[in-house]
Write a protein that binds this DNA or RNA. Structure first.
Lengths: 247, 247
DNA sequence: ATCTGACCTTGACGAAGATCAAAACATACC
DNA sequence: GGTATGTTTTGATCTTCGTCAAGGTCAGAT
């Protein structure tokens, strides 16, 4: 292979650019102009595949890069002093992993691929350097960090004030919205996580999650077939979350 | 008054600079060199007093500035669709308010002064401009945002997995640490918030908070006199949180 | 085809914490 | 001082969810 051939971008690489990525309206590049995205392309050059059941990172791993989910689904969870597990989030396409490790330089959670997944690697040092020259990207990054705080607070609200049925309803609606924004069906959900993972995320036991699913099924809110969930009455689910329906 | 006199900084203003602020080792300036802090001083020029019982901002207020708590104590809380309240945090000296409003441009929570308080106003546009020229400050700001995510996740863990006594113990220890870092007694706590606020923060009812306080008192962990709390056995409190003491 | 293991559902029971109620206590205001 | 008002403590009871246990379903391995 001669130099010119080596310099030419193989087909693979073209697809790996933010500029042409199908997720660019959801991910980091949202709202940036073409020039800024080109600069991003120079920094985000690496992709990494993570098979289902594999960890992308674990607690204590040194933090060098953020990861943007390109495909698949991750769960991020922490282990308490005595082994209690708390799932802090489920991340999918266009969402960032590792934000909590920026302070401290060490990963605080474990990121496990629930299905075969792929992430774009964002070397953080180079990324921070890039930010100083690109005010648009800086604003976008701060917005992402801030949105991540908002997400946590919403979950805190759920854990602190809601009953089991409200939590599960809110969970399904959130998932529905996020999948819808990614061009998937907002009513036909193929859950990548187990009842136990859901319960852990919502502060419930898996039996309770299962019971509430059954209750929703009896009430005609959803159809349940294992991890395949169909939302049948989204308005009533919404009413449940906003507390209009007390029972 | 002549020009020179006008240009000279009145005594008041000298005290209002980050460079000389007694909280600079806790607040935004942490880890910055003198030159960077001087640049901060140019942007953070305004202070605002907030009396006990007053709001610094409310849900829906336009977001223009972050606020750094200079003195006093705030509670930040959100109201759910049906009026459920969830306290998302208690902020004191050196801590920032309004981070969750960066994305969205609108405040997500209500910030209420629990005692007479004062904040330094950080106009966000000018602050973001400043960041692009000061990599050190940028790193510090990202660390603060990231740390805020970590704090939320810690609380999520508490709400999701811990029992009432563990939550209250963790709350007291957190407060003790933060007050200690601010040169106050880490064992003699004067709580600025009501039992209801504490309960709301921890996902408990005020009666439960009161009962757990009484239980701790009977067990010799703390002395309780209304809102004045003395931690008597910090080691046992710590053991409780880390799950060593199951009962 | 059947065995195996992981995951899900359902039931019975118990415990933690919420709710309801009343009294004690503190604080500010006449 | 005495009264009104808000906060905290404590008790009795009820609800929700967790725990324990058994059985069912499904996919992949043998």
């Amino acid at each position: 292979m001669n130099d010119i051939a080596a310099a030419a971008l193989p087909h693979e690489d073209v697809k790996k650019r933010c500029s042409t990525c199908s997720l660019r309206h959801l991910c980091l590049p949202l709202g940036l102009d073409q020039d800024d995205i080109k600069r991003l392309d120079e920094v985000i050059t690496q992709r990494r595949k993570v098979s289902a059941g594999q960890h992308l990172f674990r607690v204590g791993d040194a933090f060098r890069s953020l990861a943007a989910v390109r495909a698949g689904f991750f769960k991020v969870y922490e282990l308490g002093a005595d082994g209690r597990e708390q799932v802090t989030g489920f991340q999918t396409e266009g969402e960032l992993l590792g934000l909590d490790a920026i302070s401290g330089g060490v990963h605080r959670g474990n990121a496990l691929a629930l299905v075969d997944a792929e992430v774009c690697v964002i070397p953080f040092d180079r990324f921070e350097d890039l930010l100083t020259g690109l005010p648009g990207l800086q604003r976008r990054f701060h917005a992402i960090l801030s949105a991540s705080i908002v997400t946590s607070q919403t979950l805190m609200m759920m854990l602190g004030t809601m009953r089991a049925e409200h939590r599960l309803a809110a969970f399904l609606l959130d998932l529905s919205t996020r999948l819808g924004a990614r061009g998937r069906s907002p009513t036909l959900l193929q859950l990548p996580m187990s009842r136990e993972d859901i319960g852990n995320y919502l502060g419930l036991k898996l039996e309770t999650v299962s019971r509430v699913f059954s209750q929703f099924r009896r009430e005609g809110l959803v159809a349940v077939a294992g991890r395949a969930i169909e939302i049948l009455d989204i308005d009533r689910l919404r009413a449940l979350v906003s507390g209009v329906l007390r029972r």
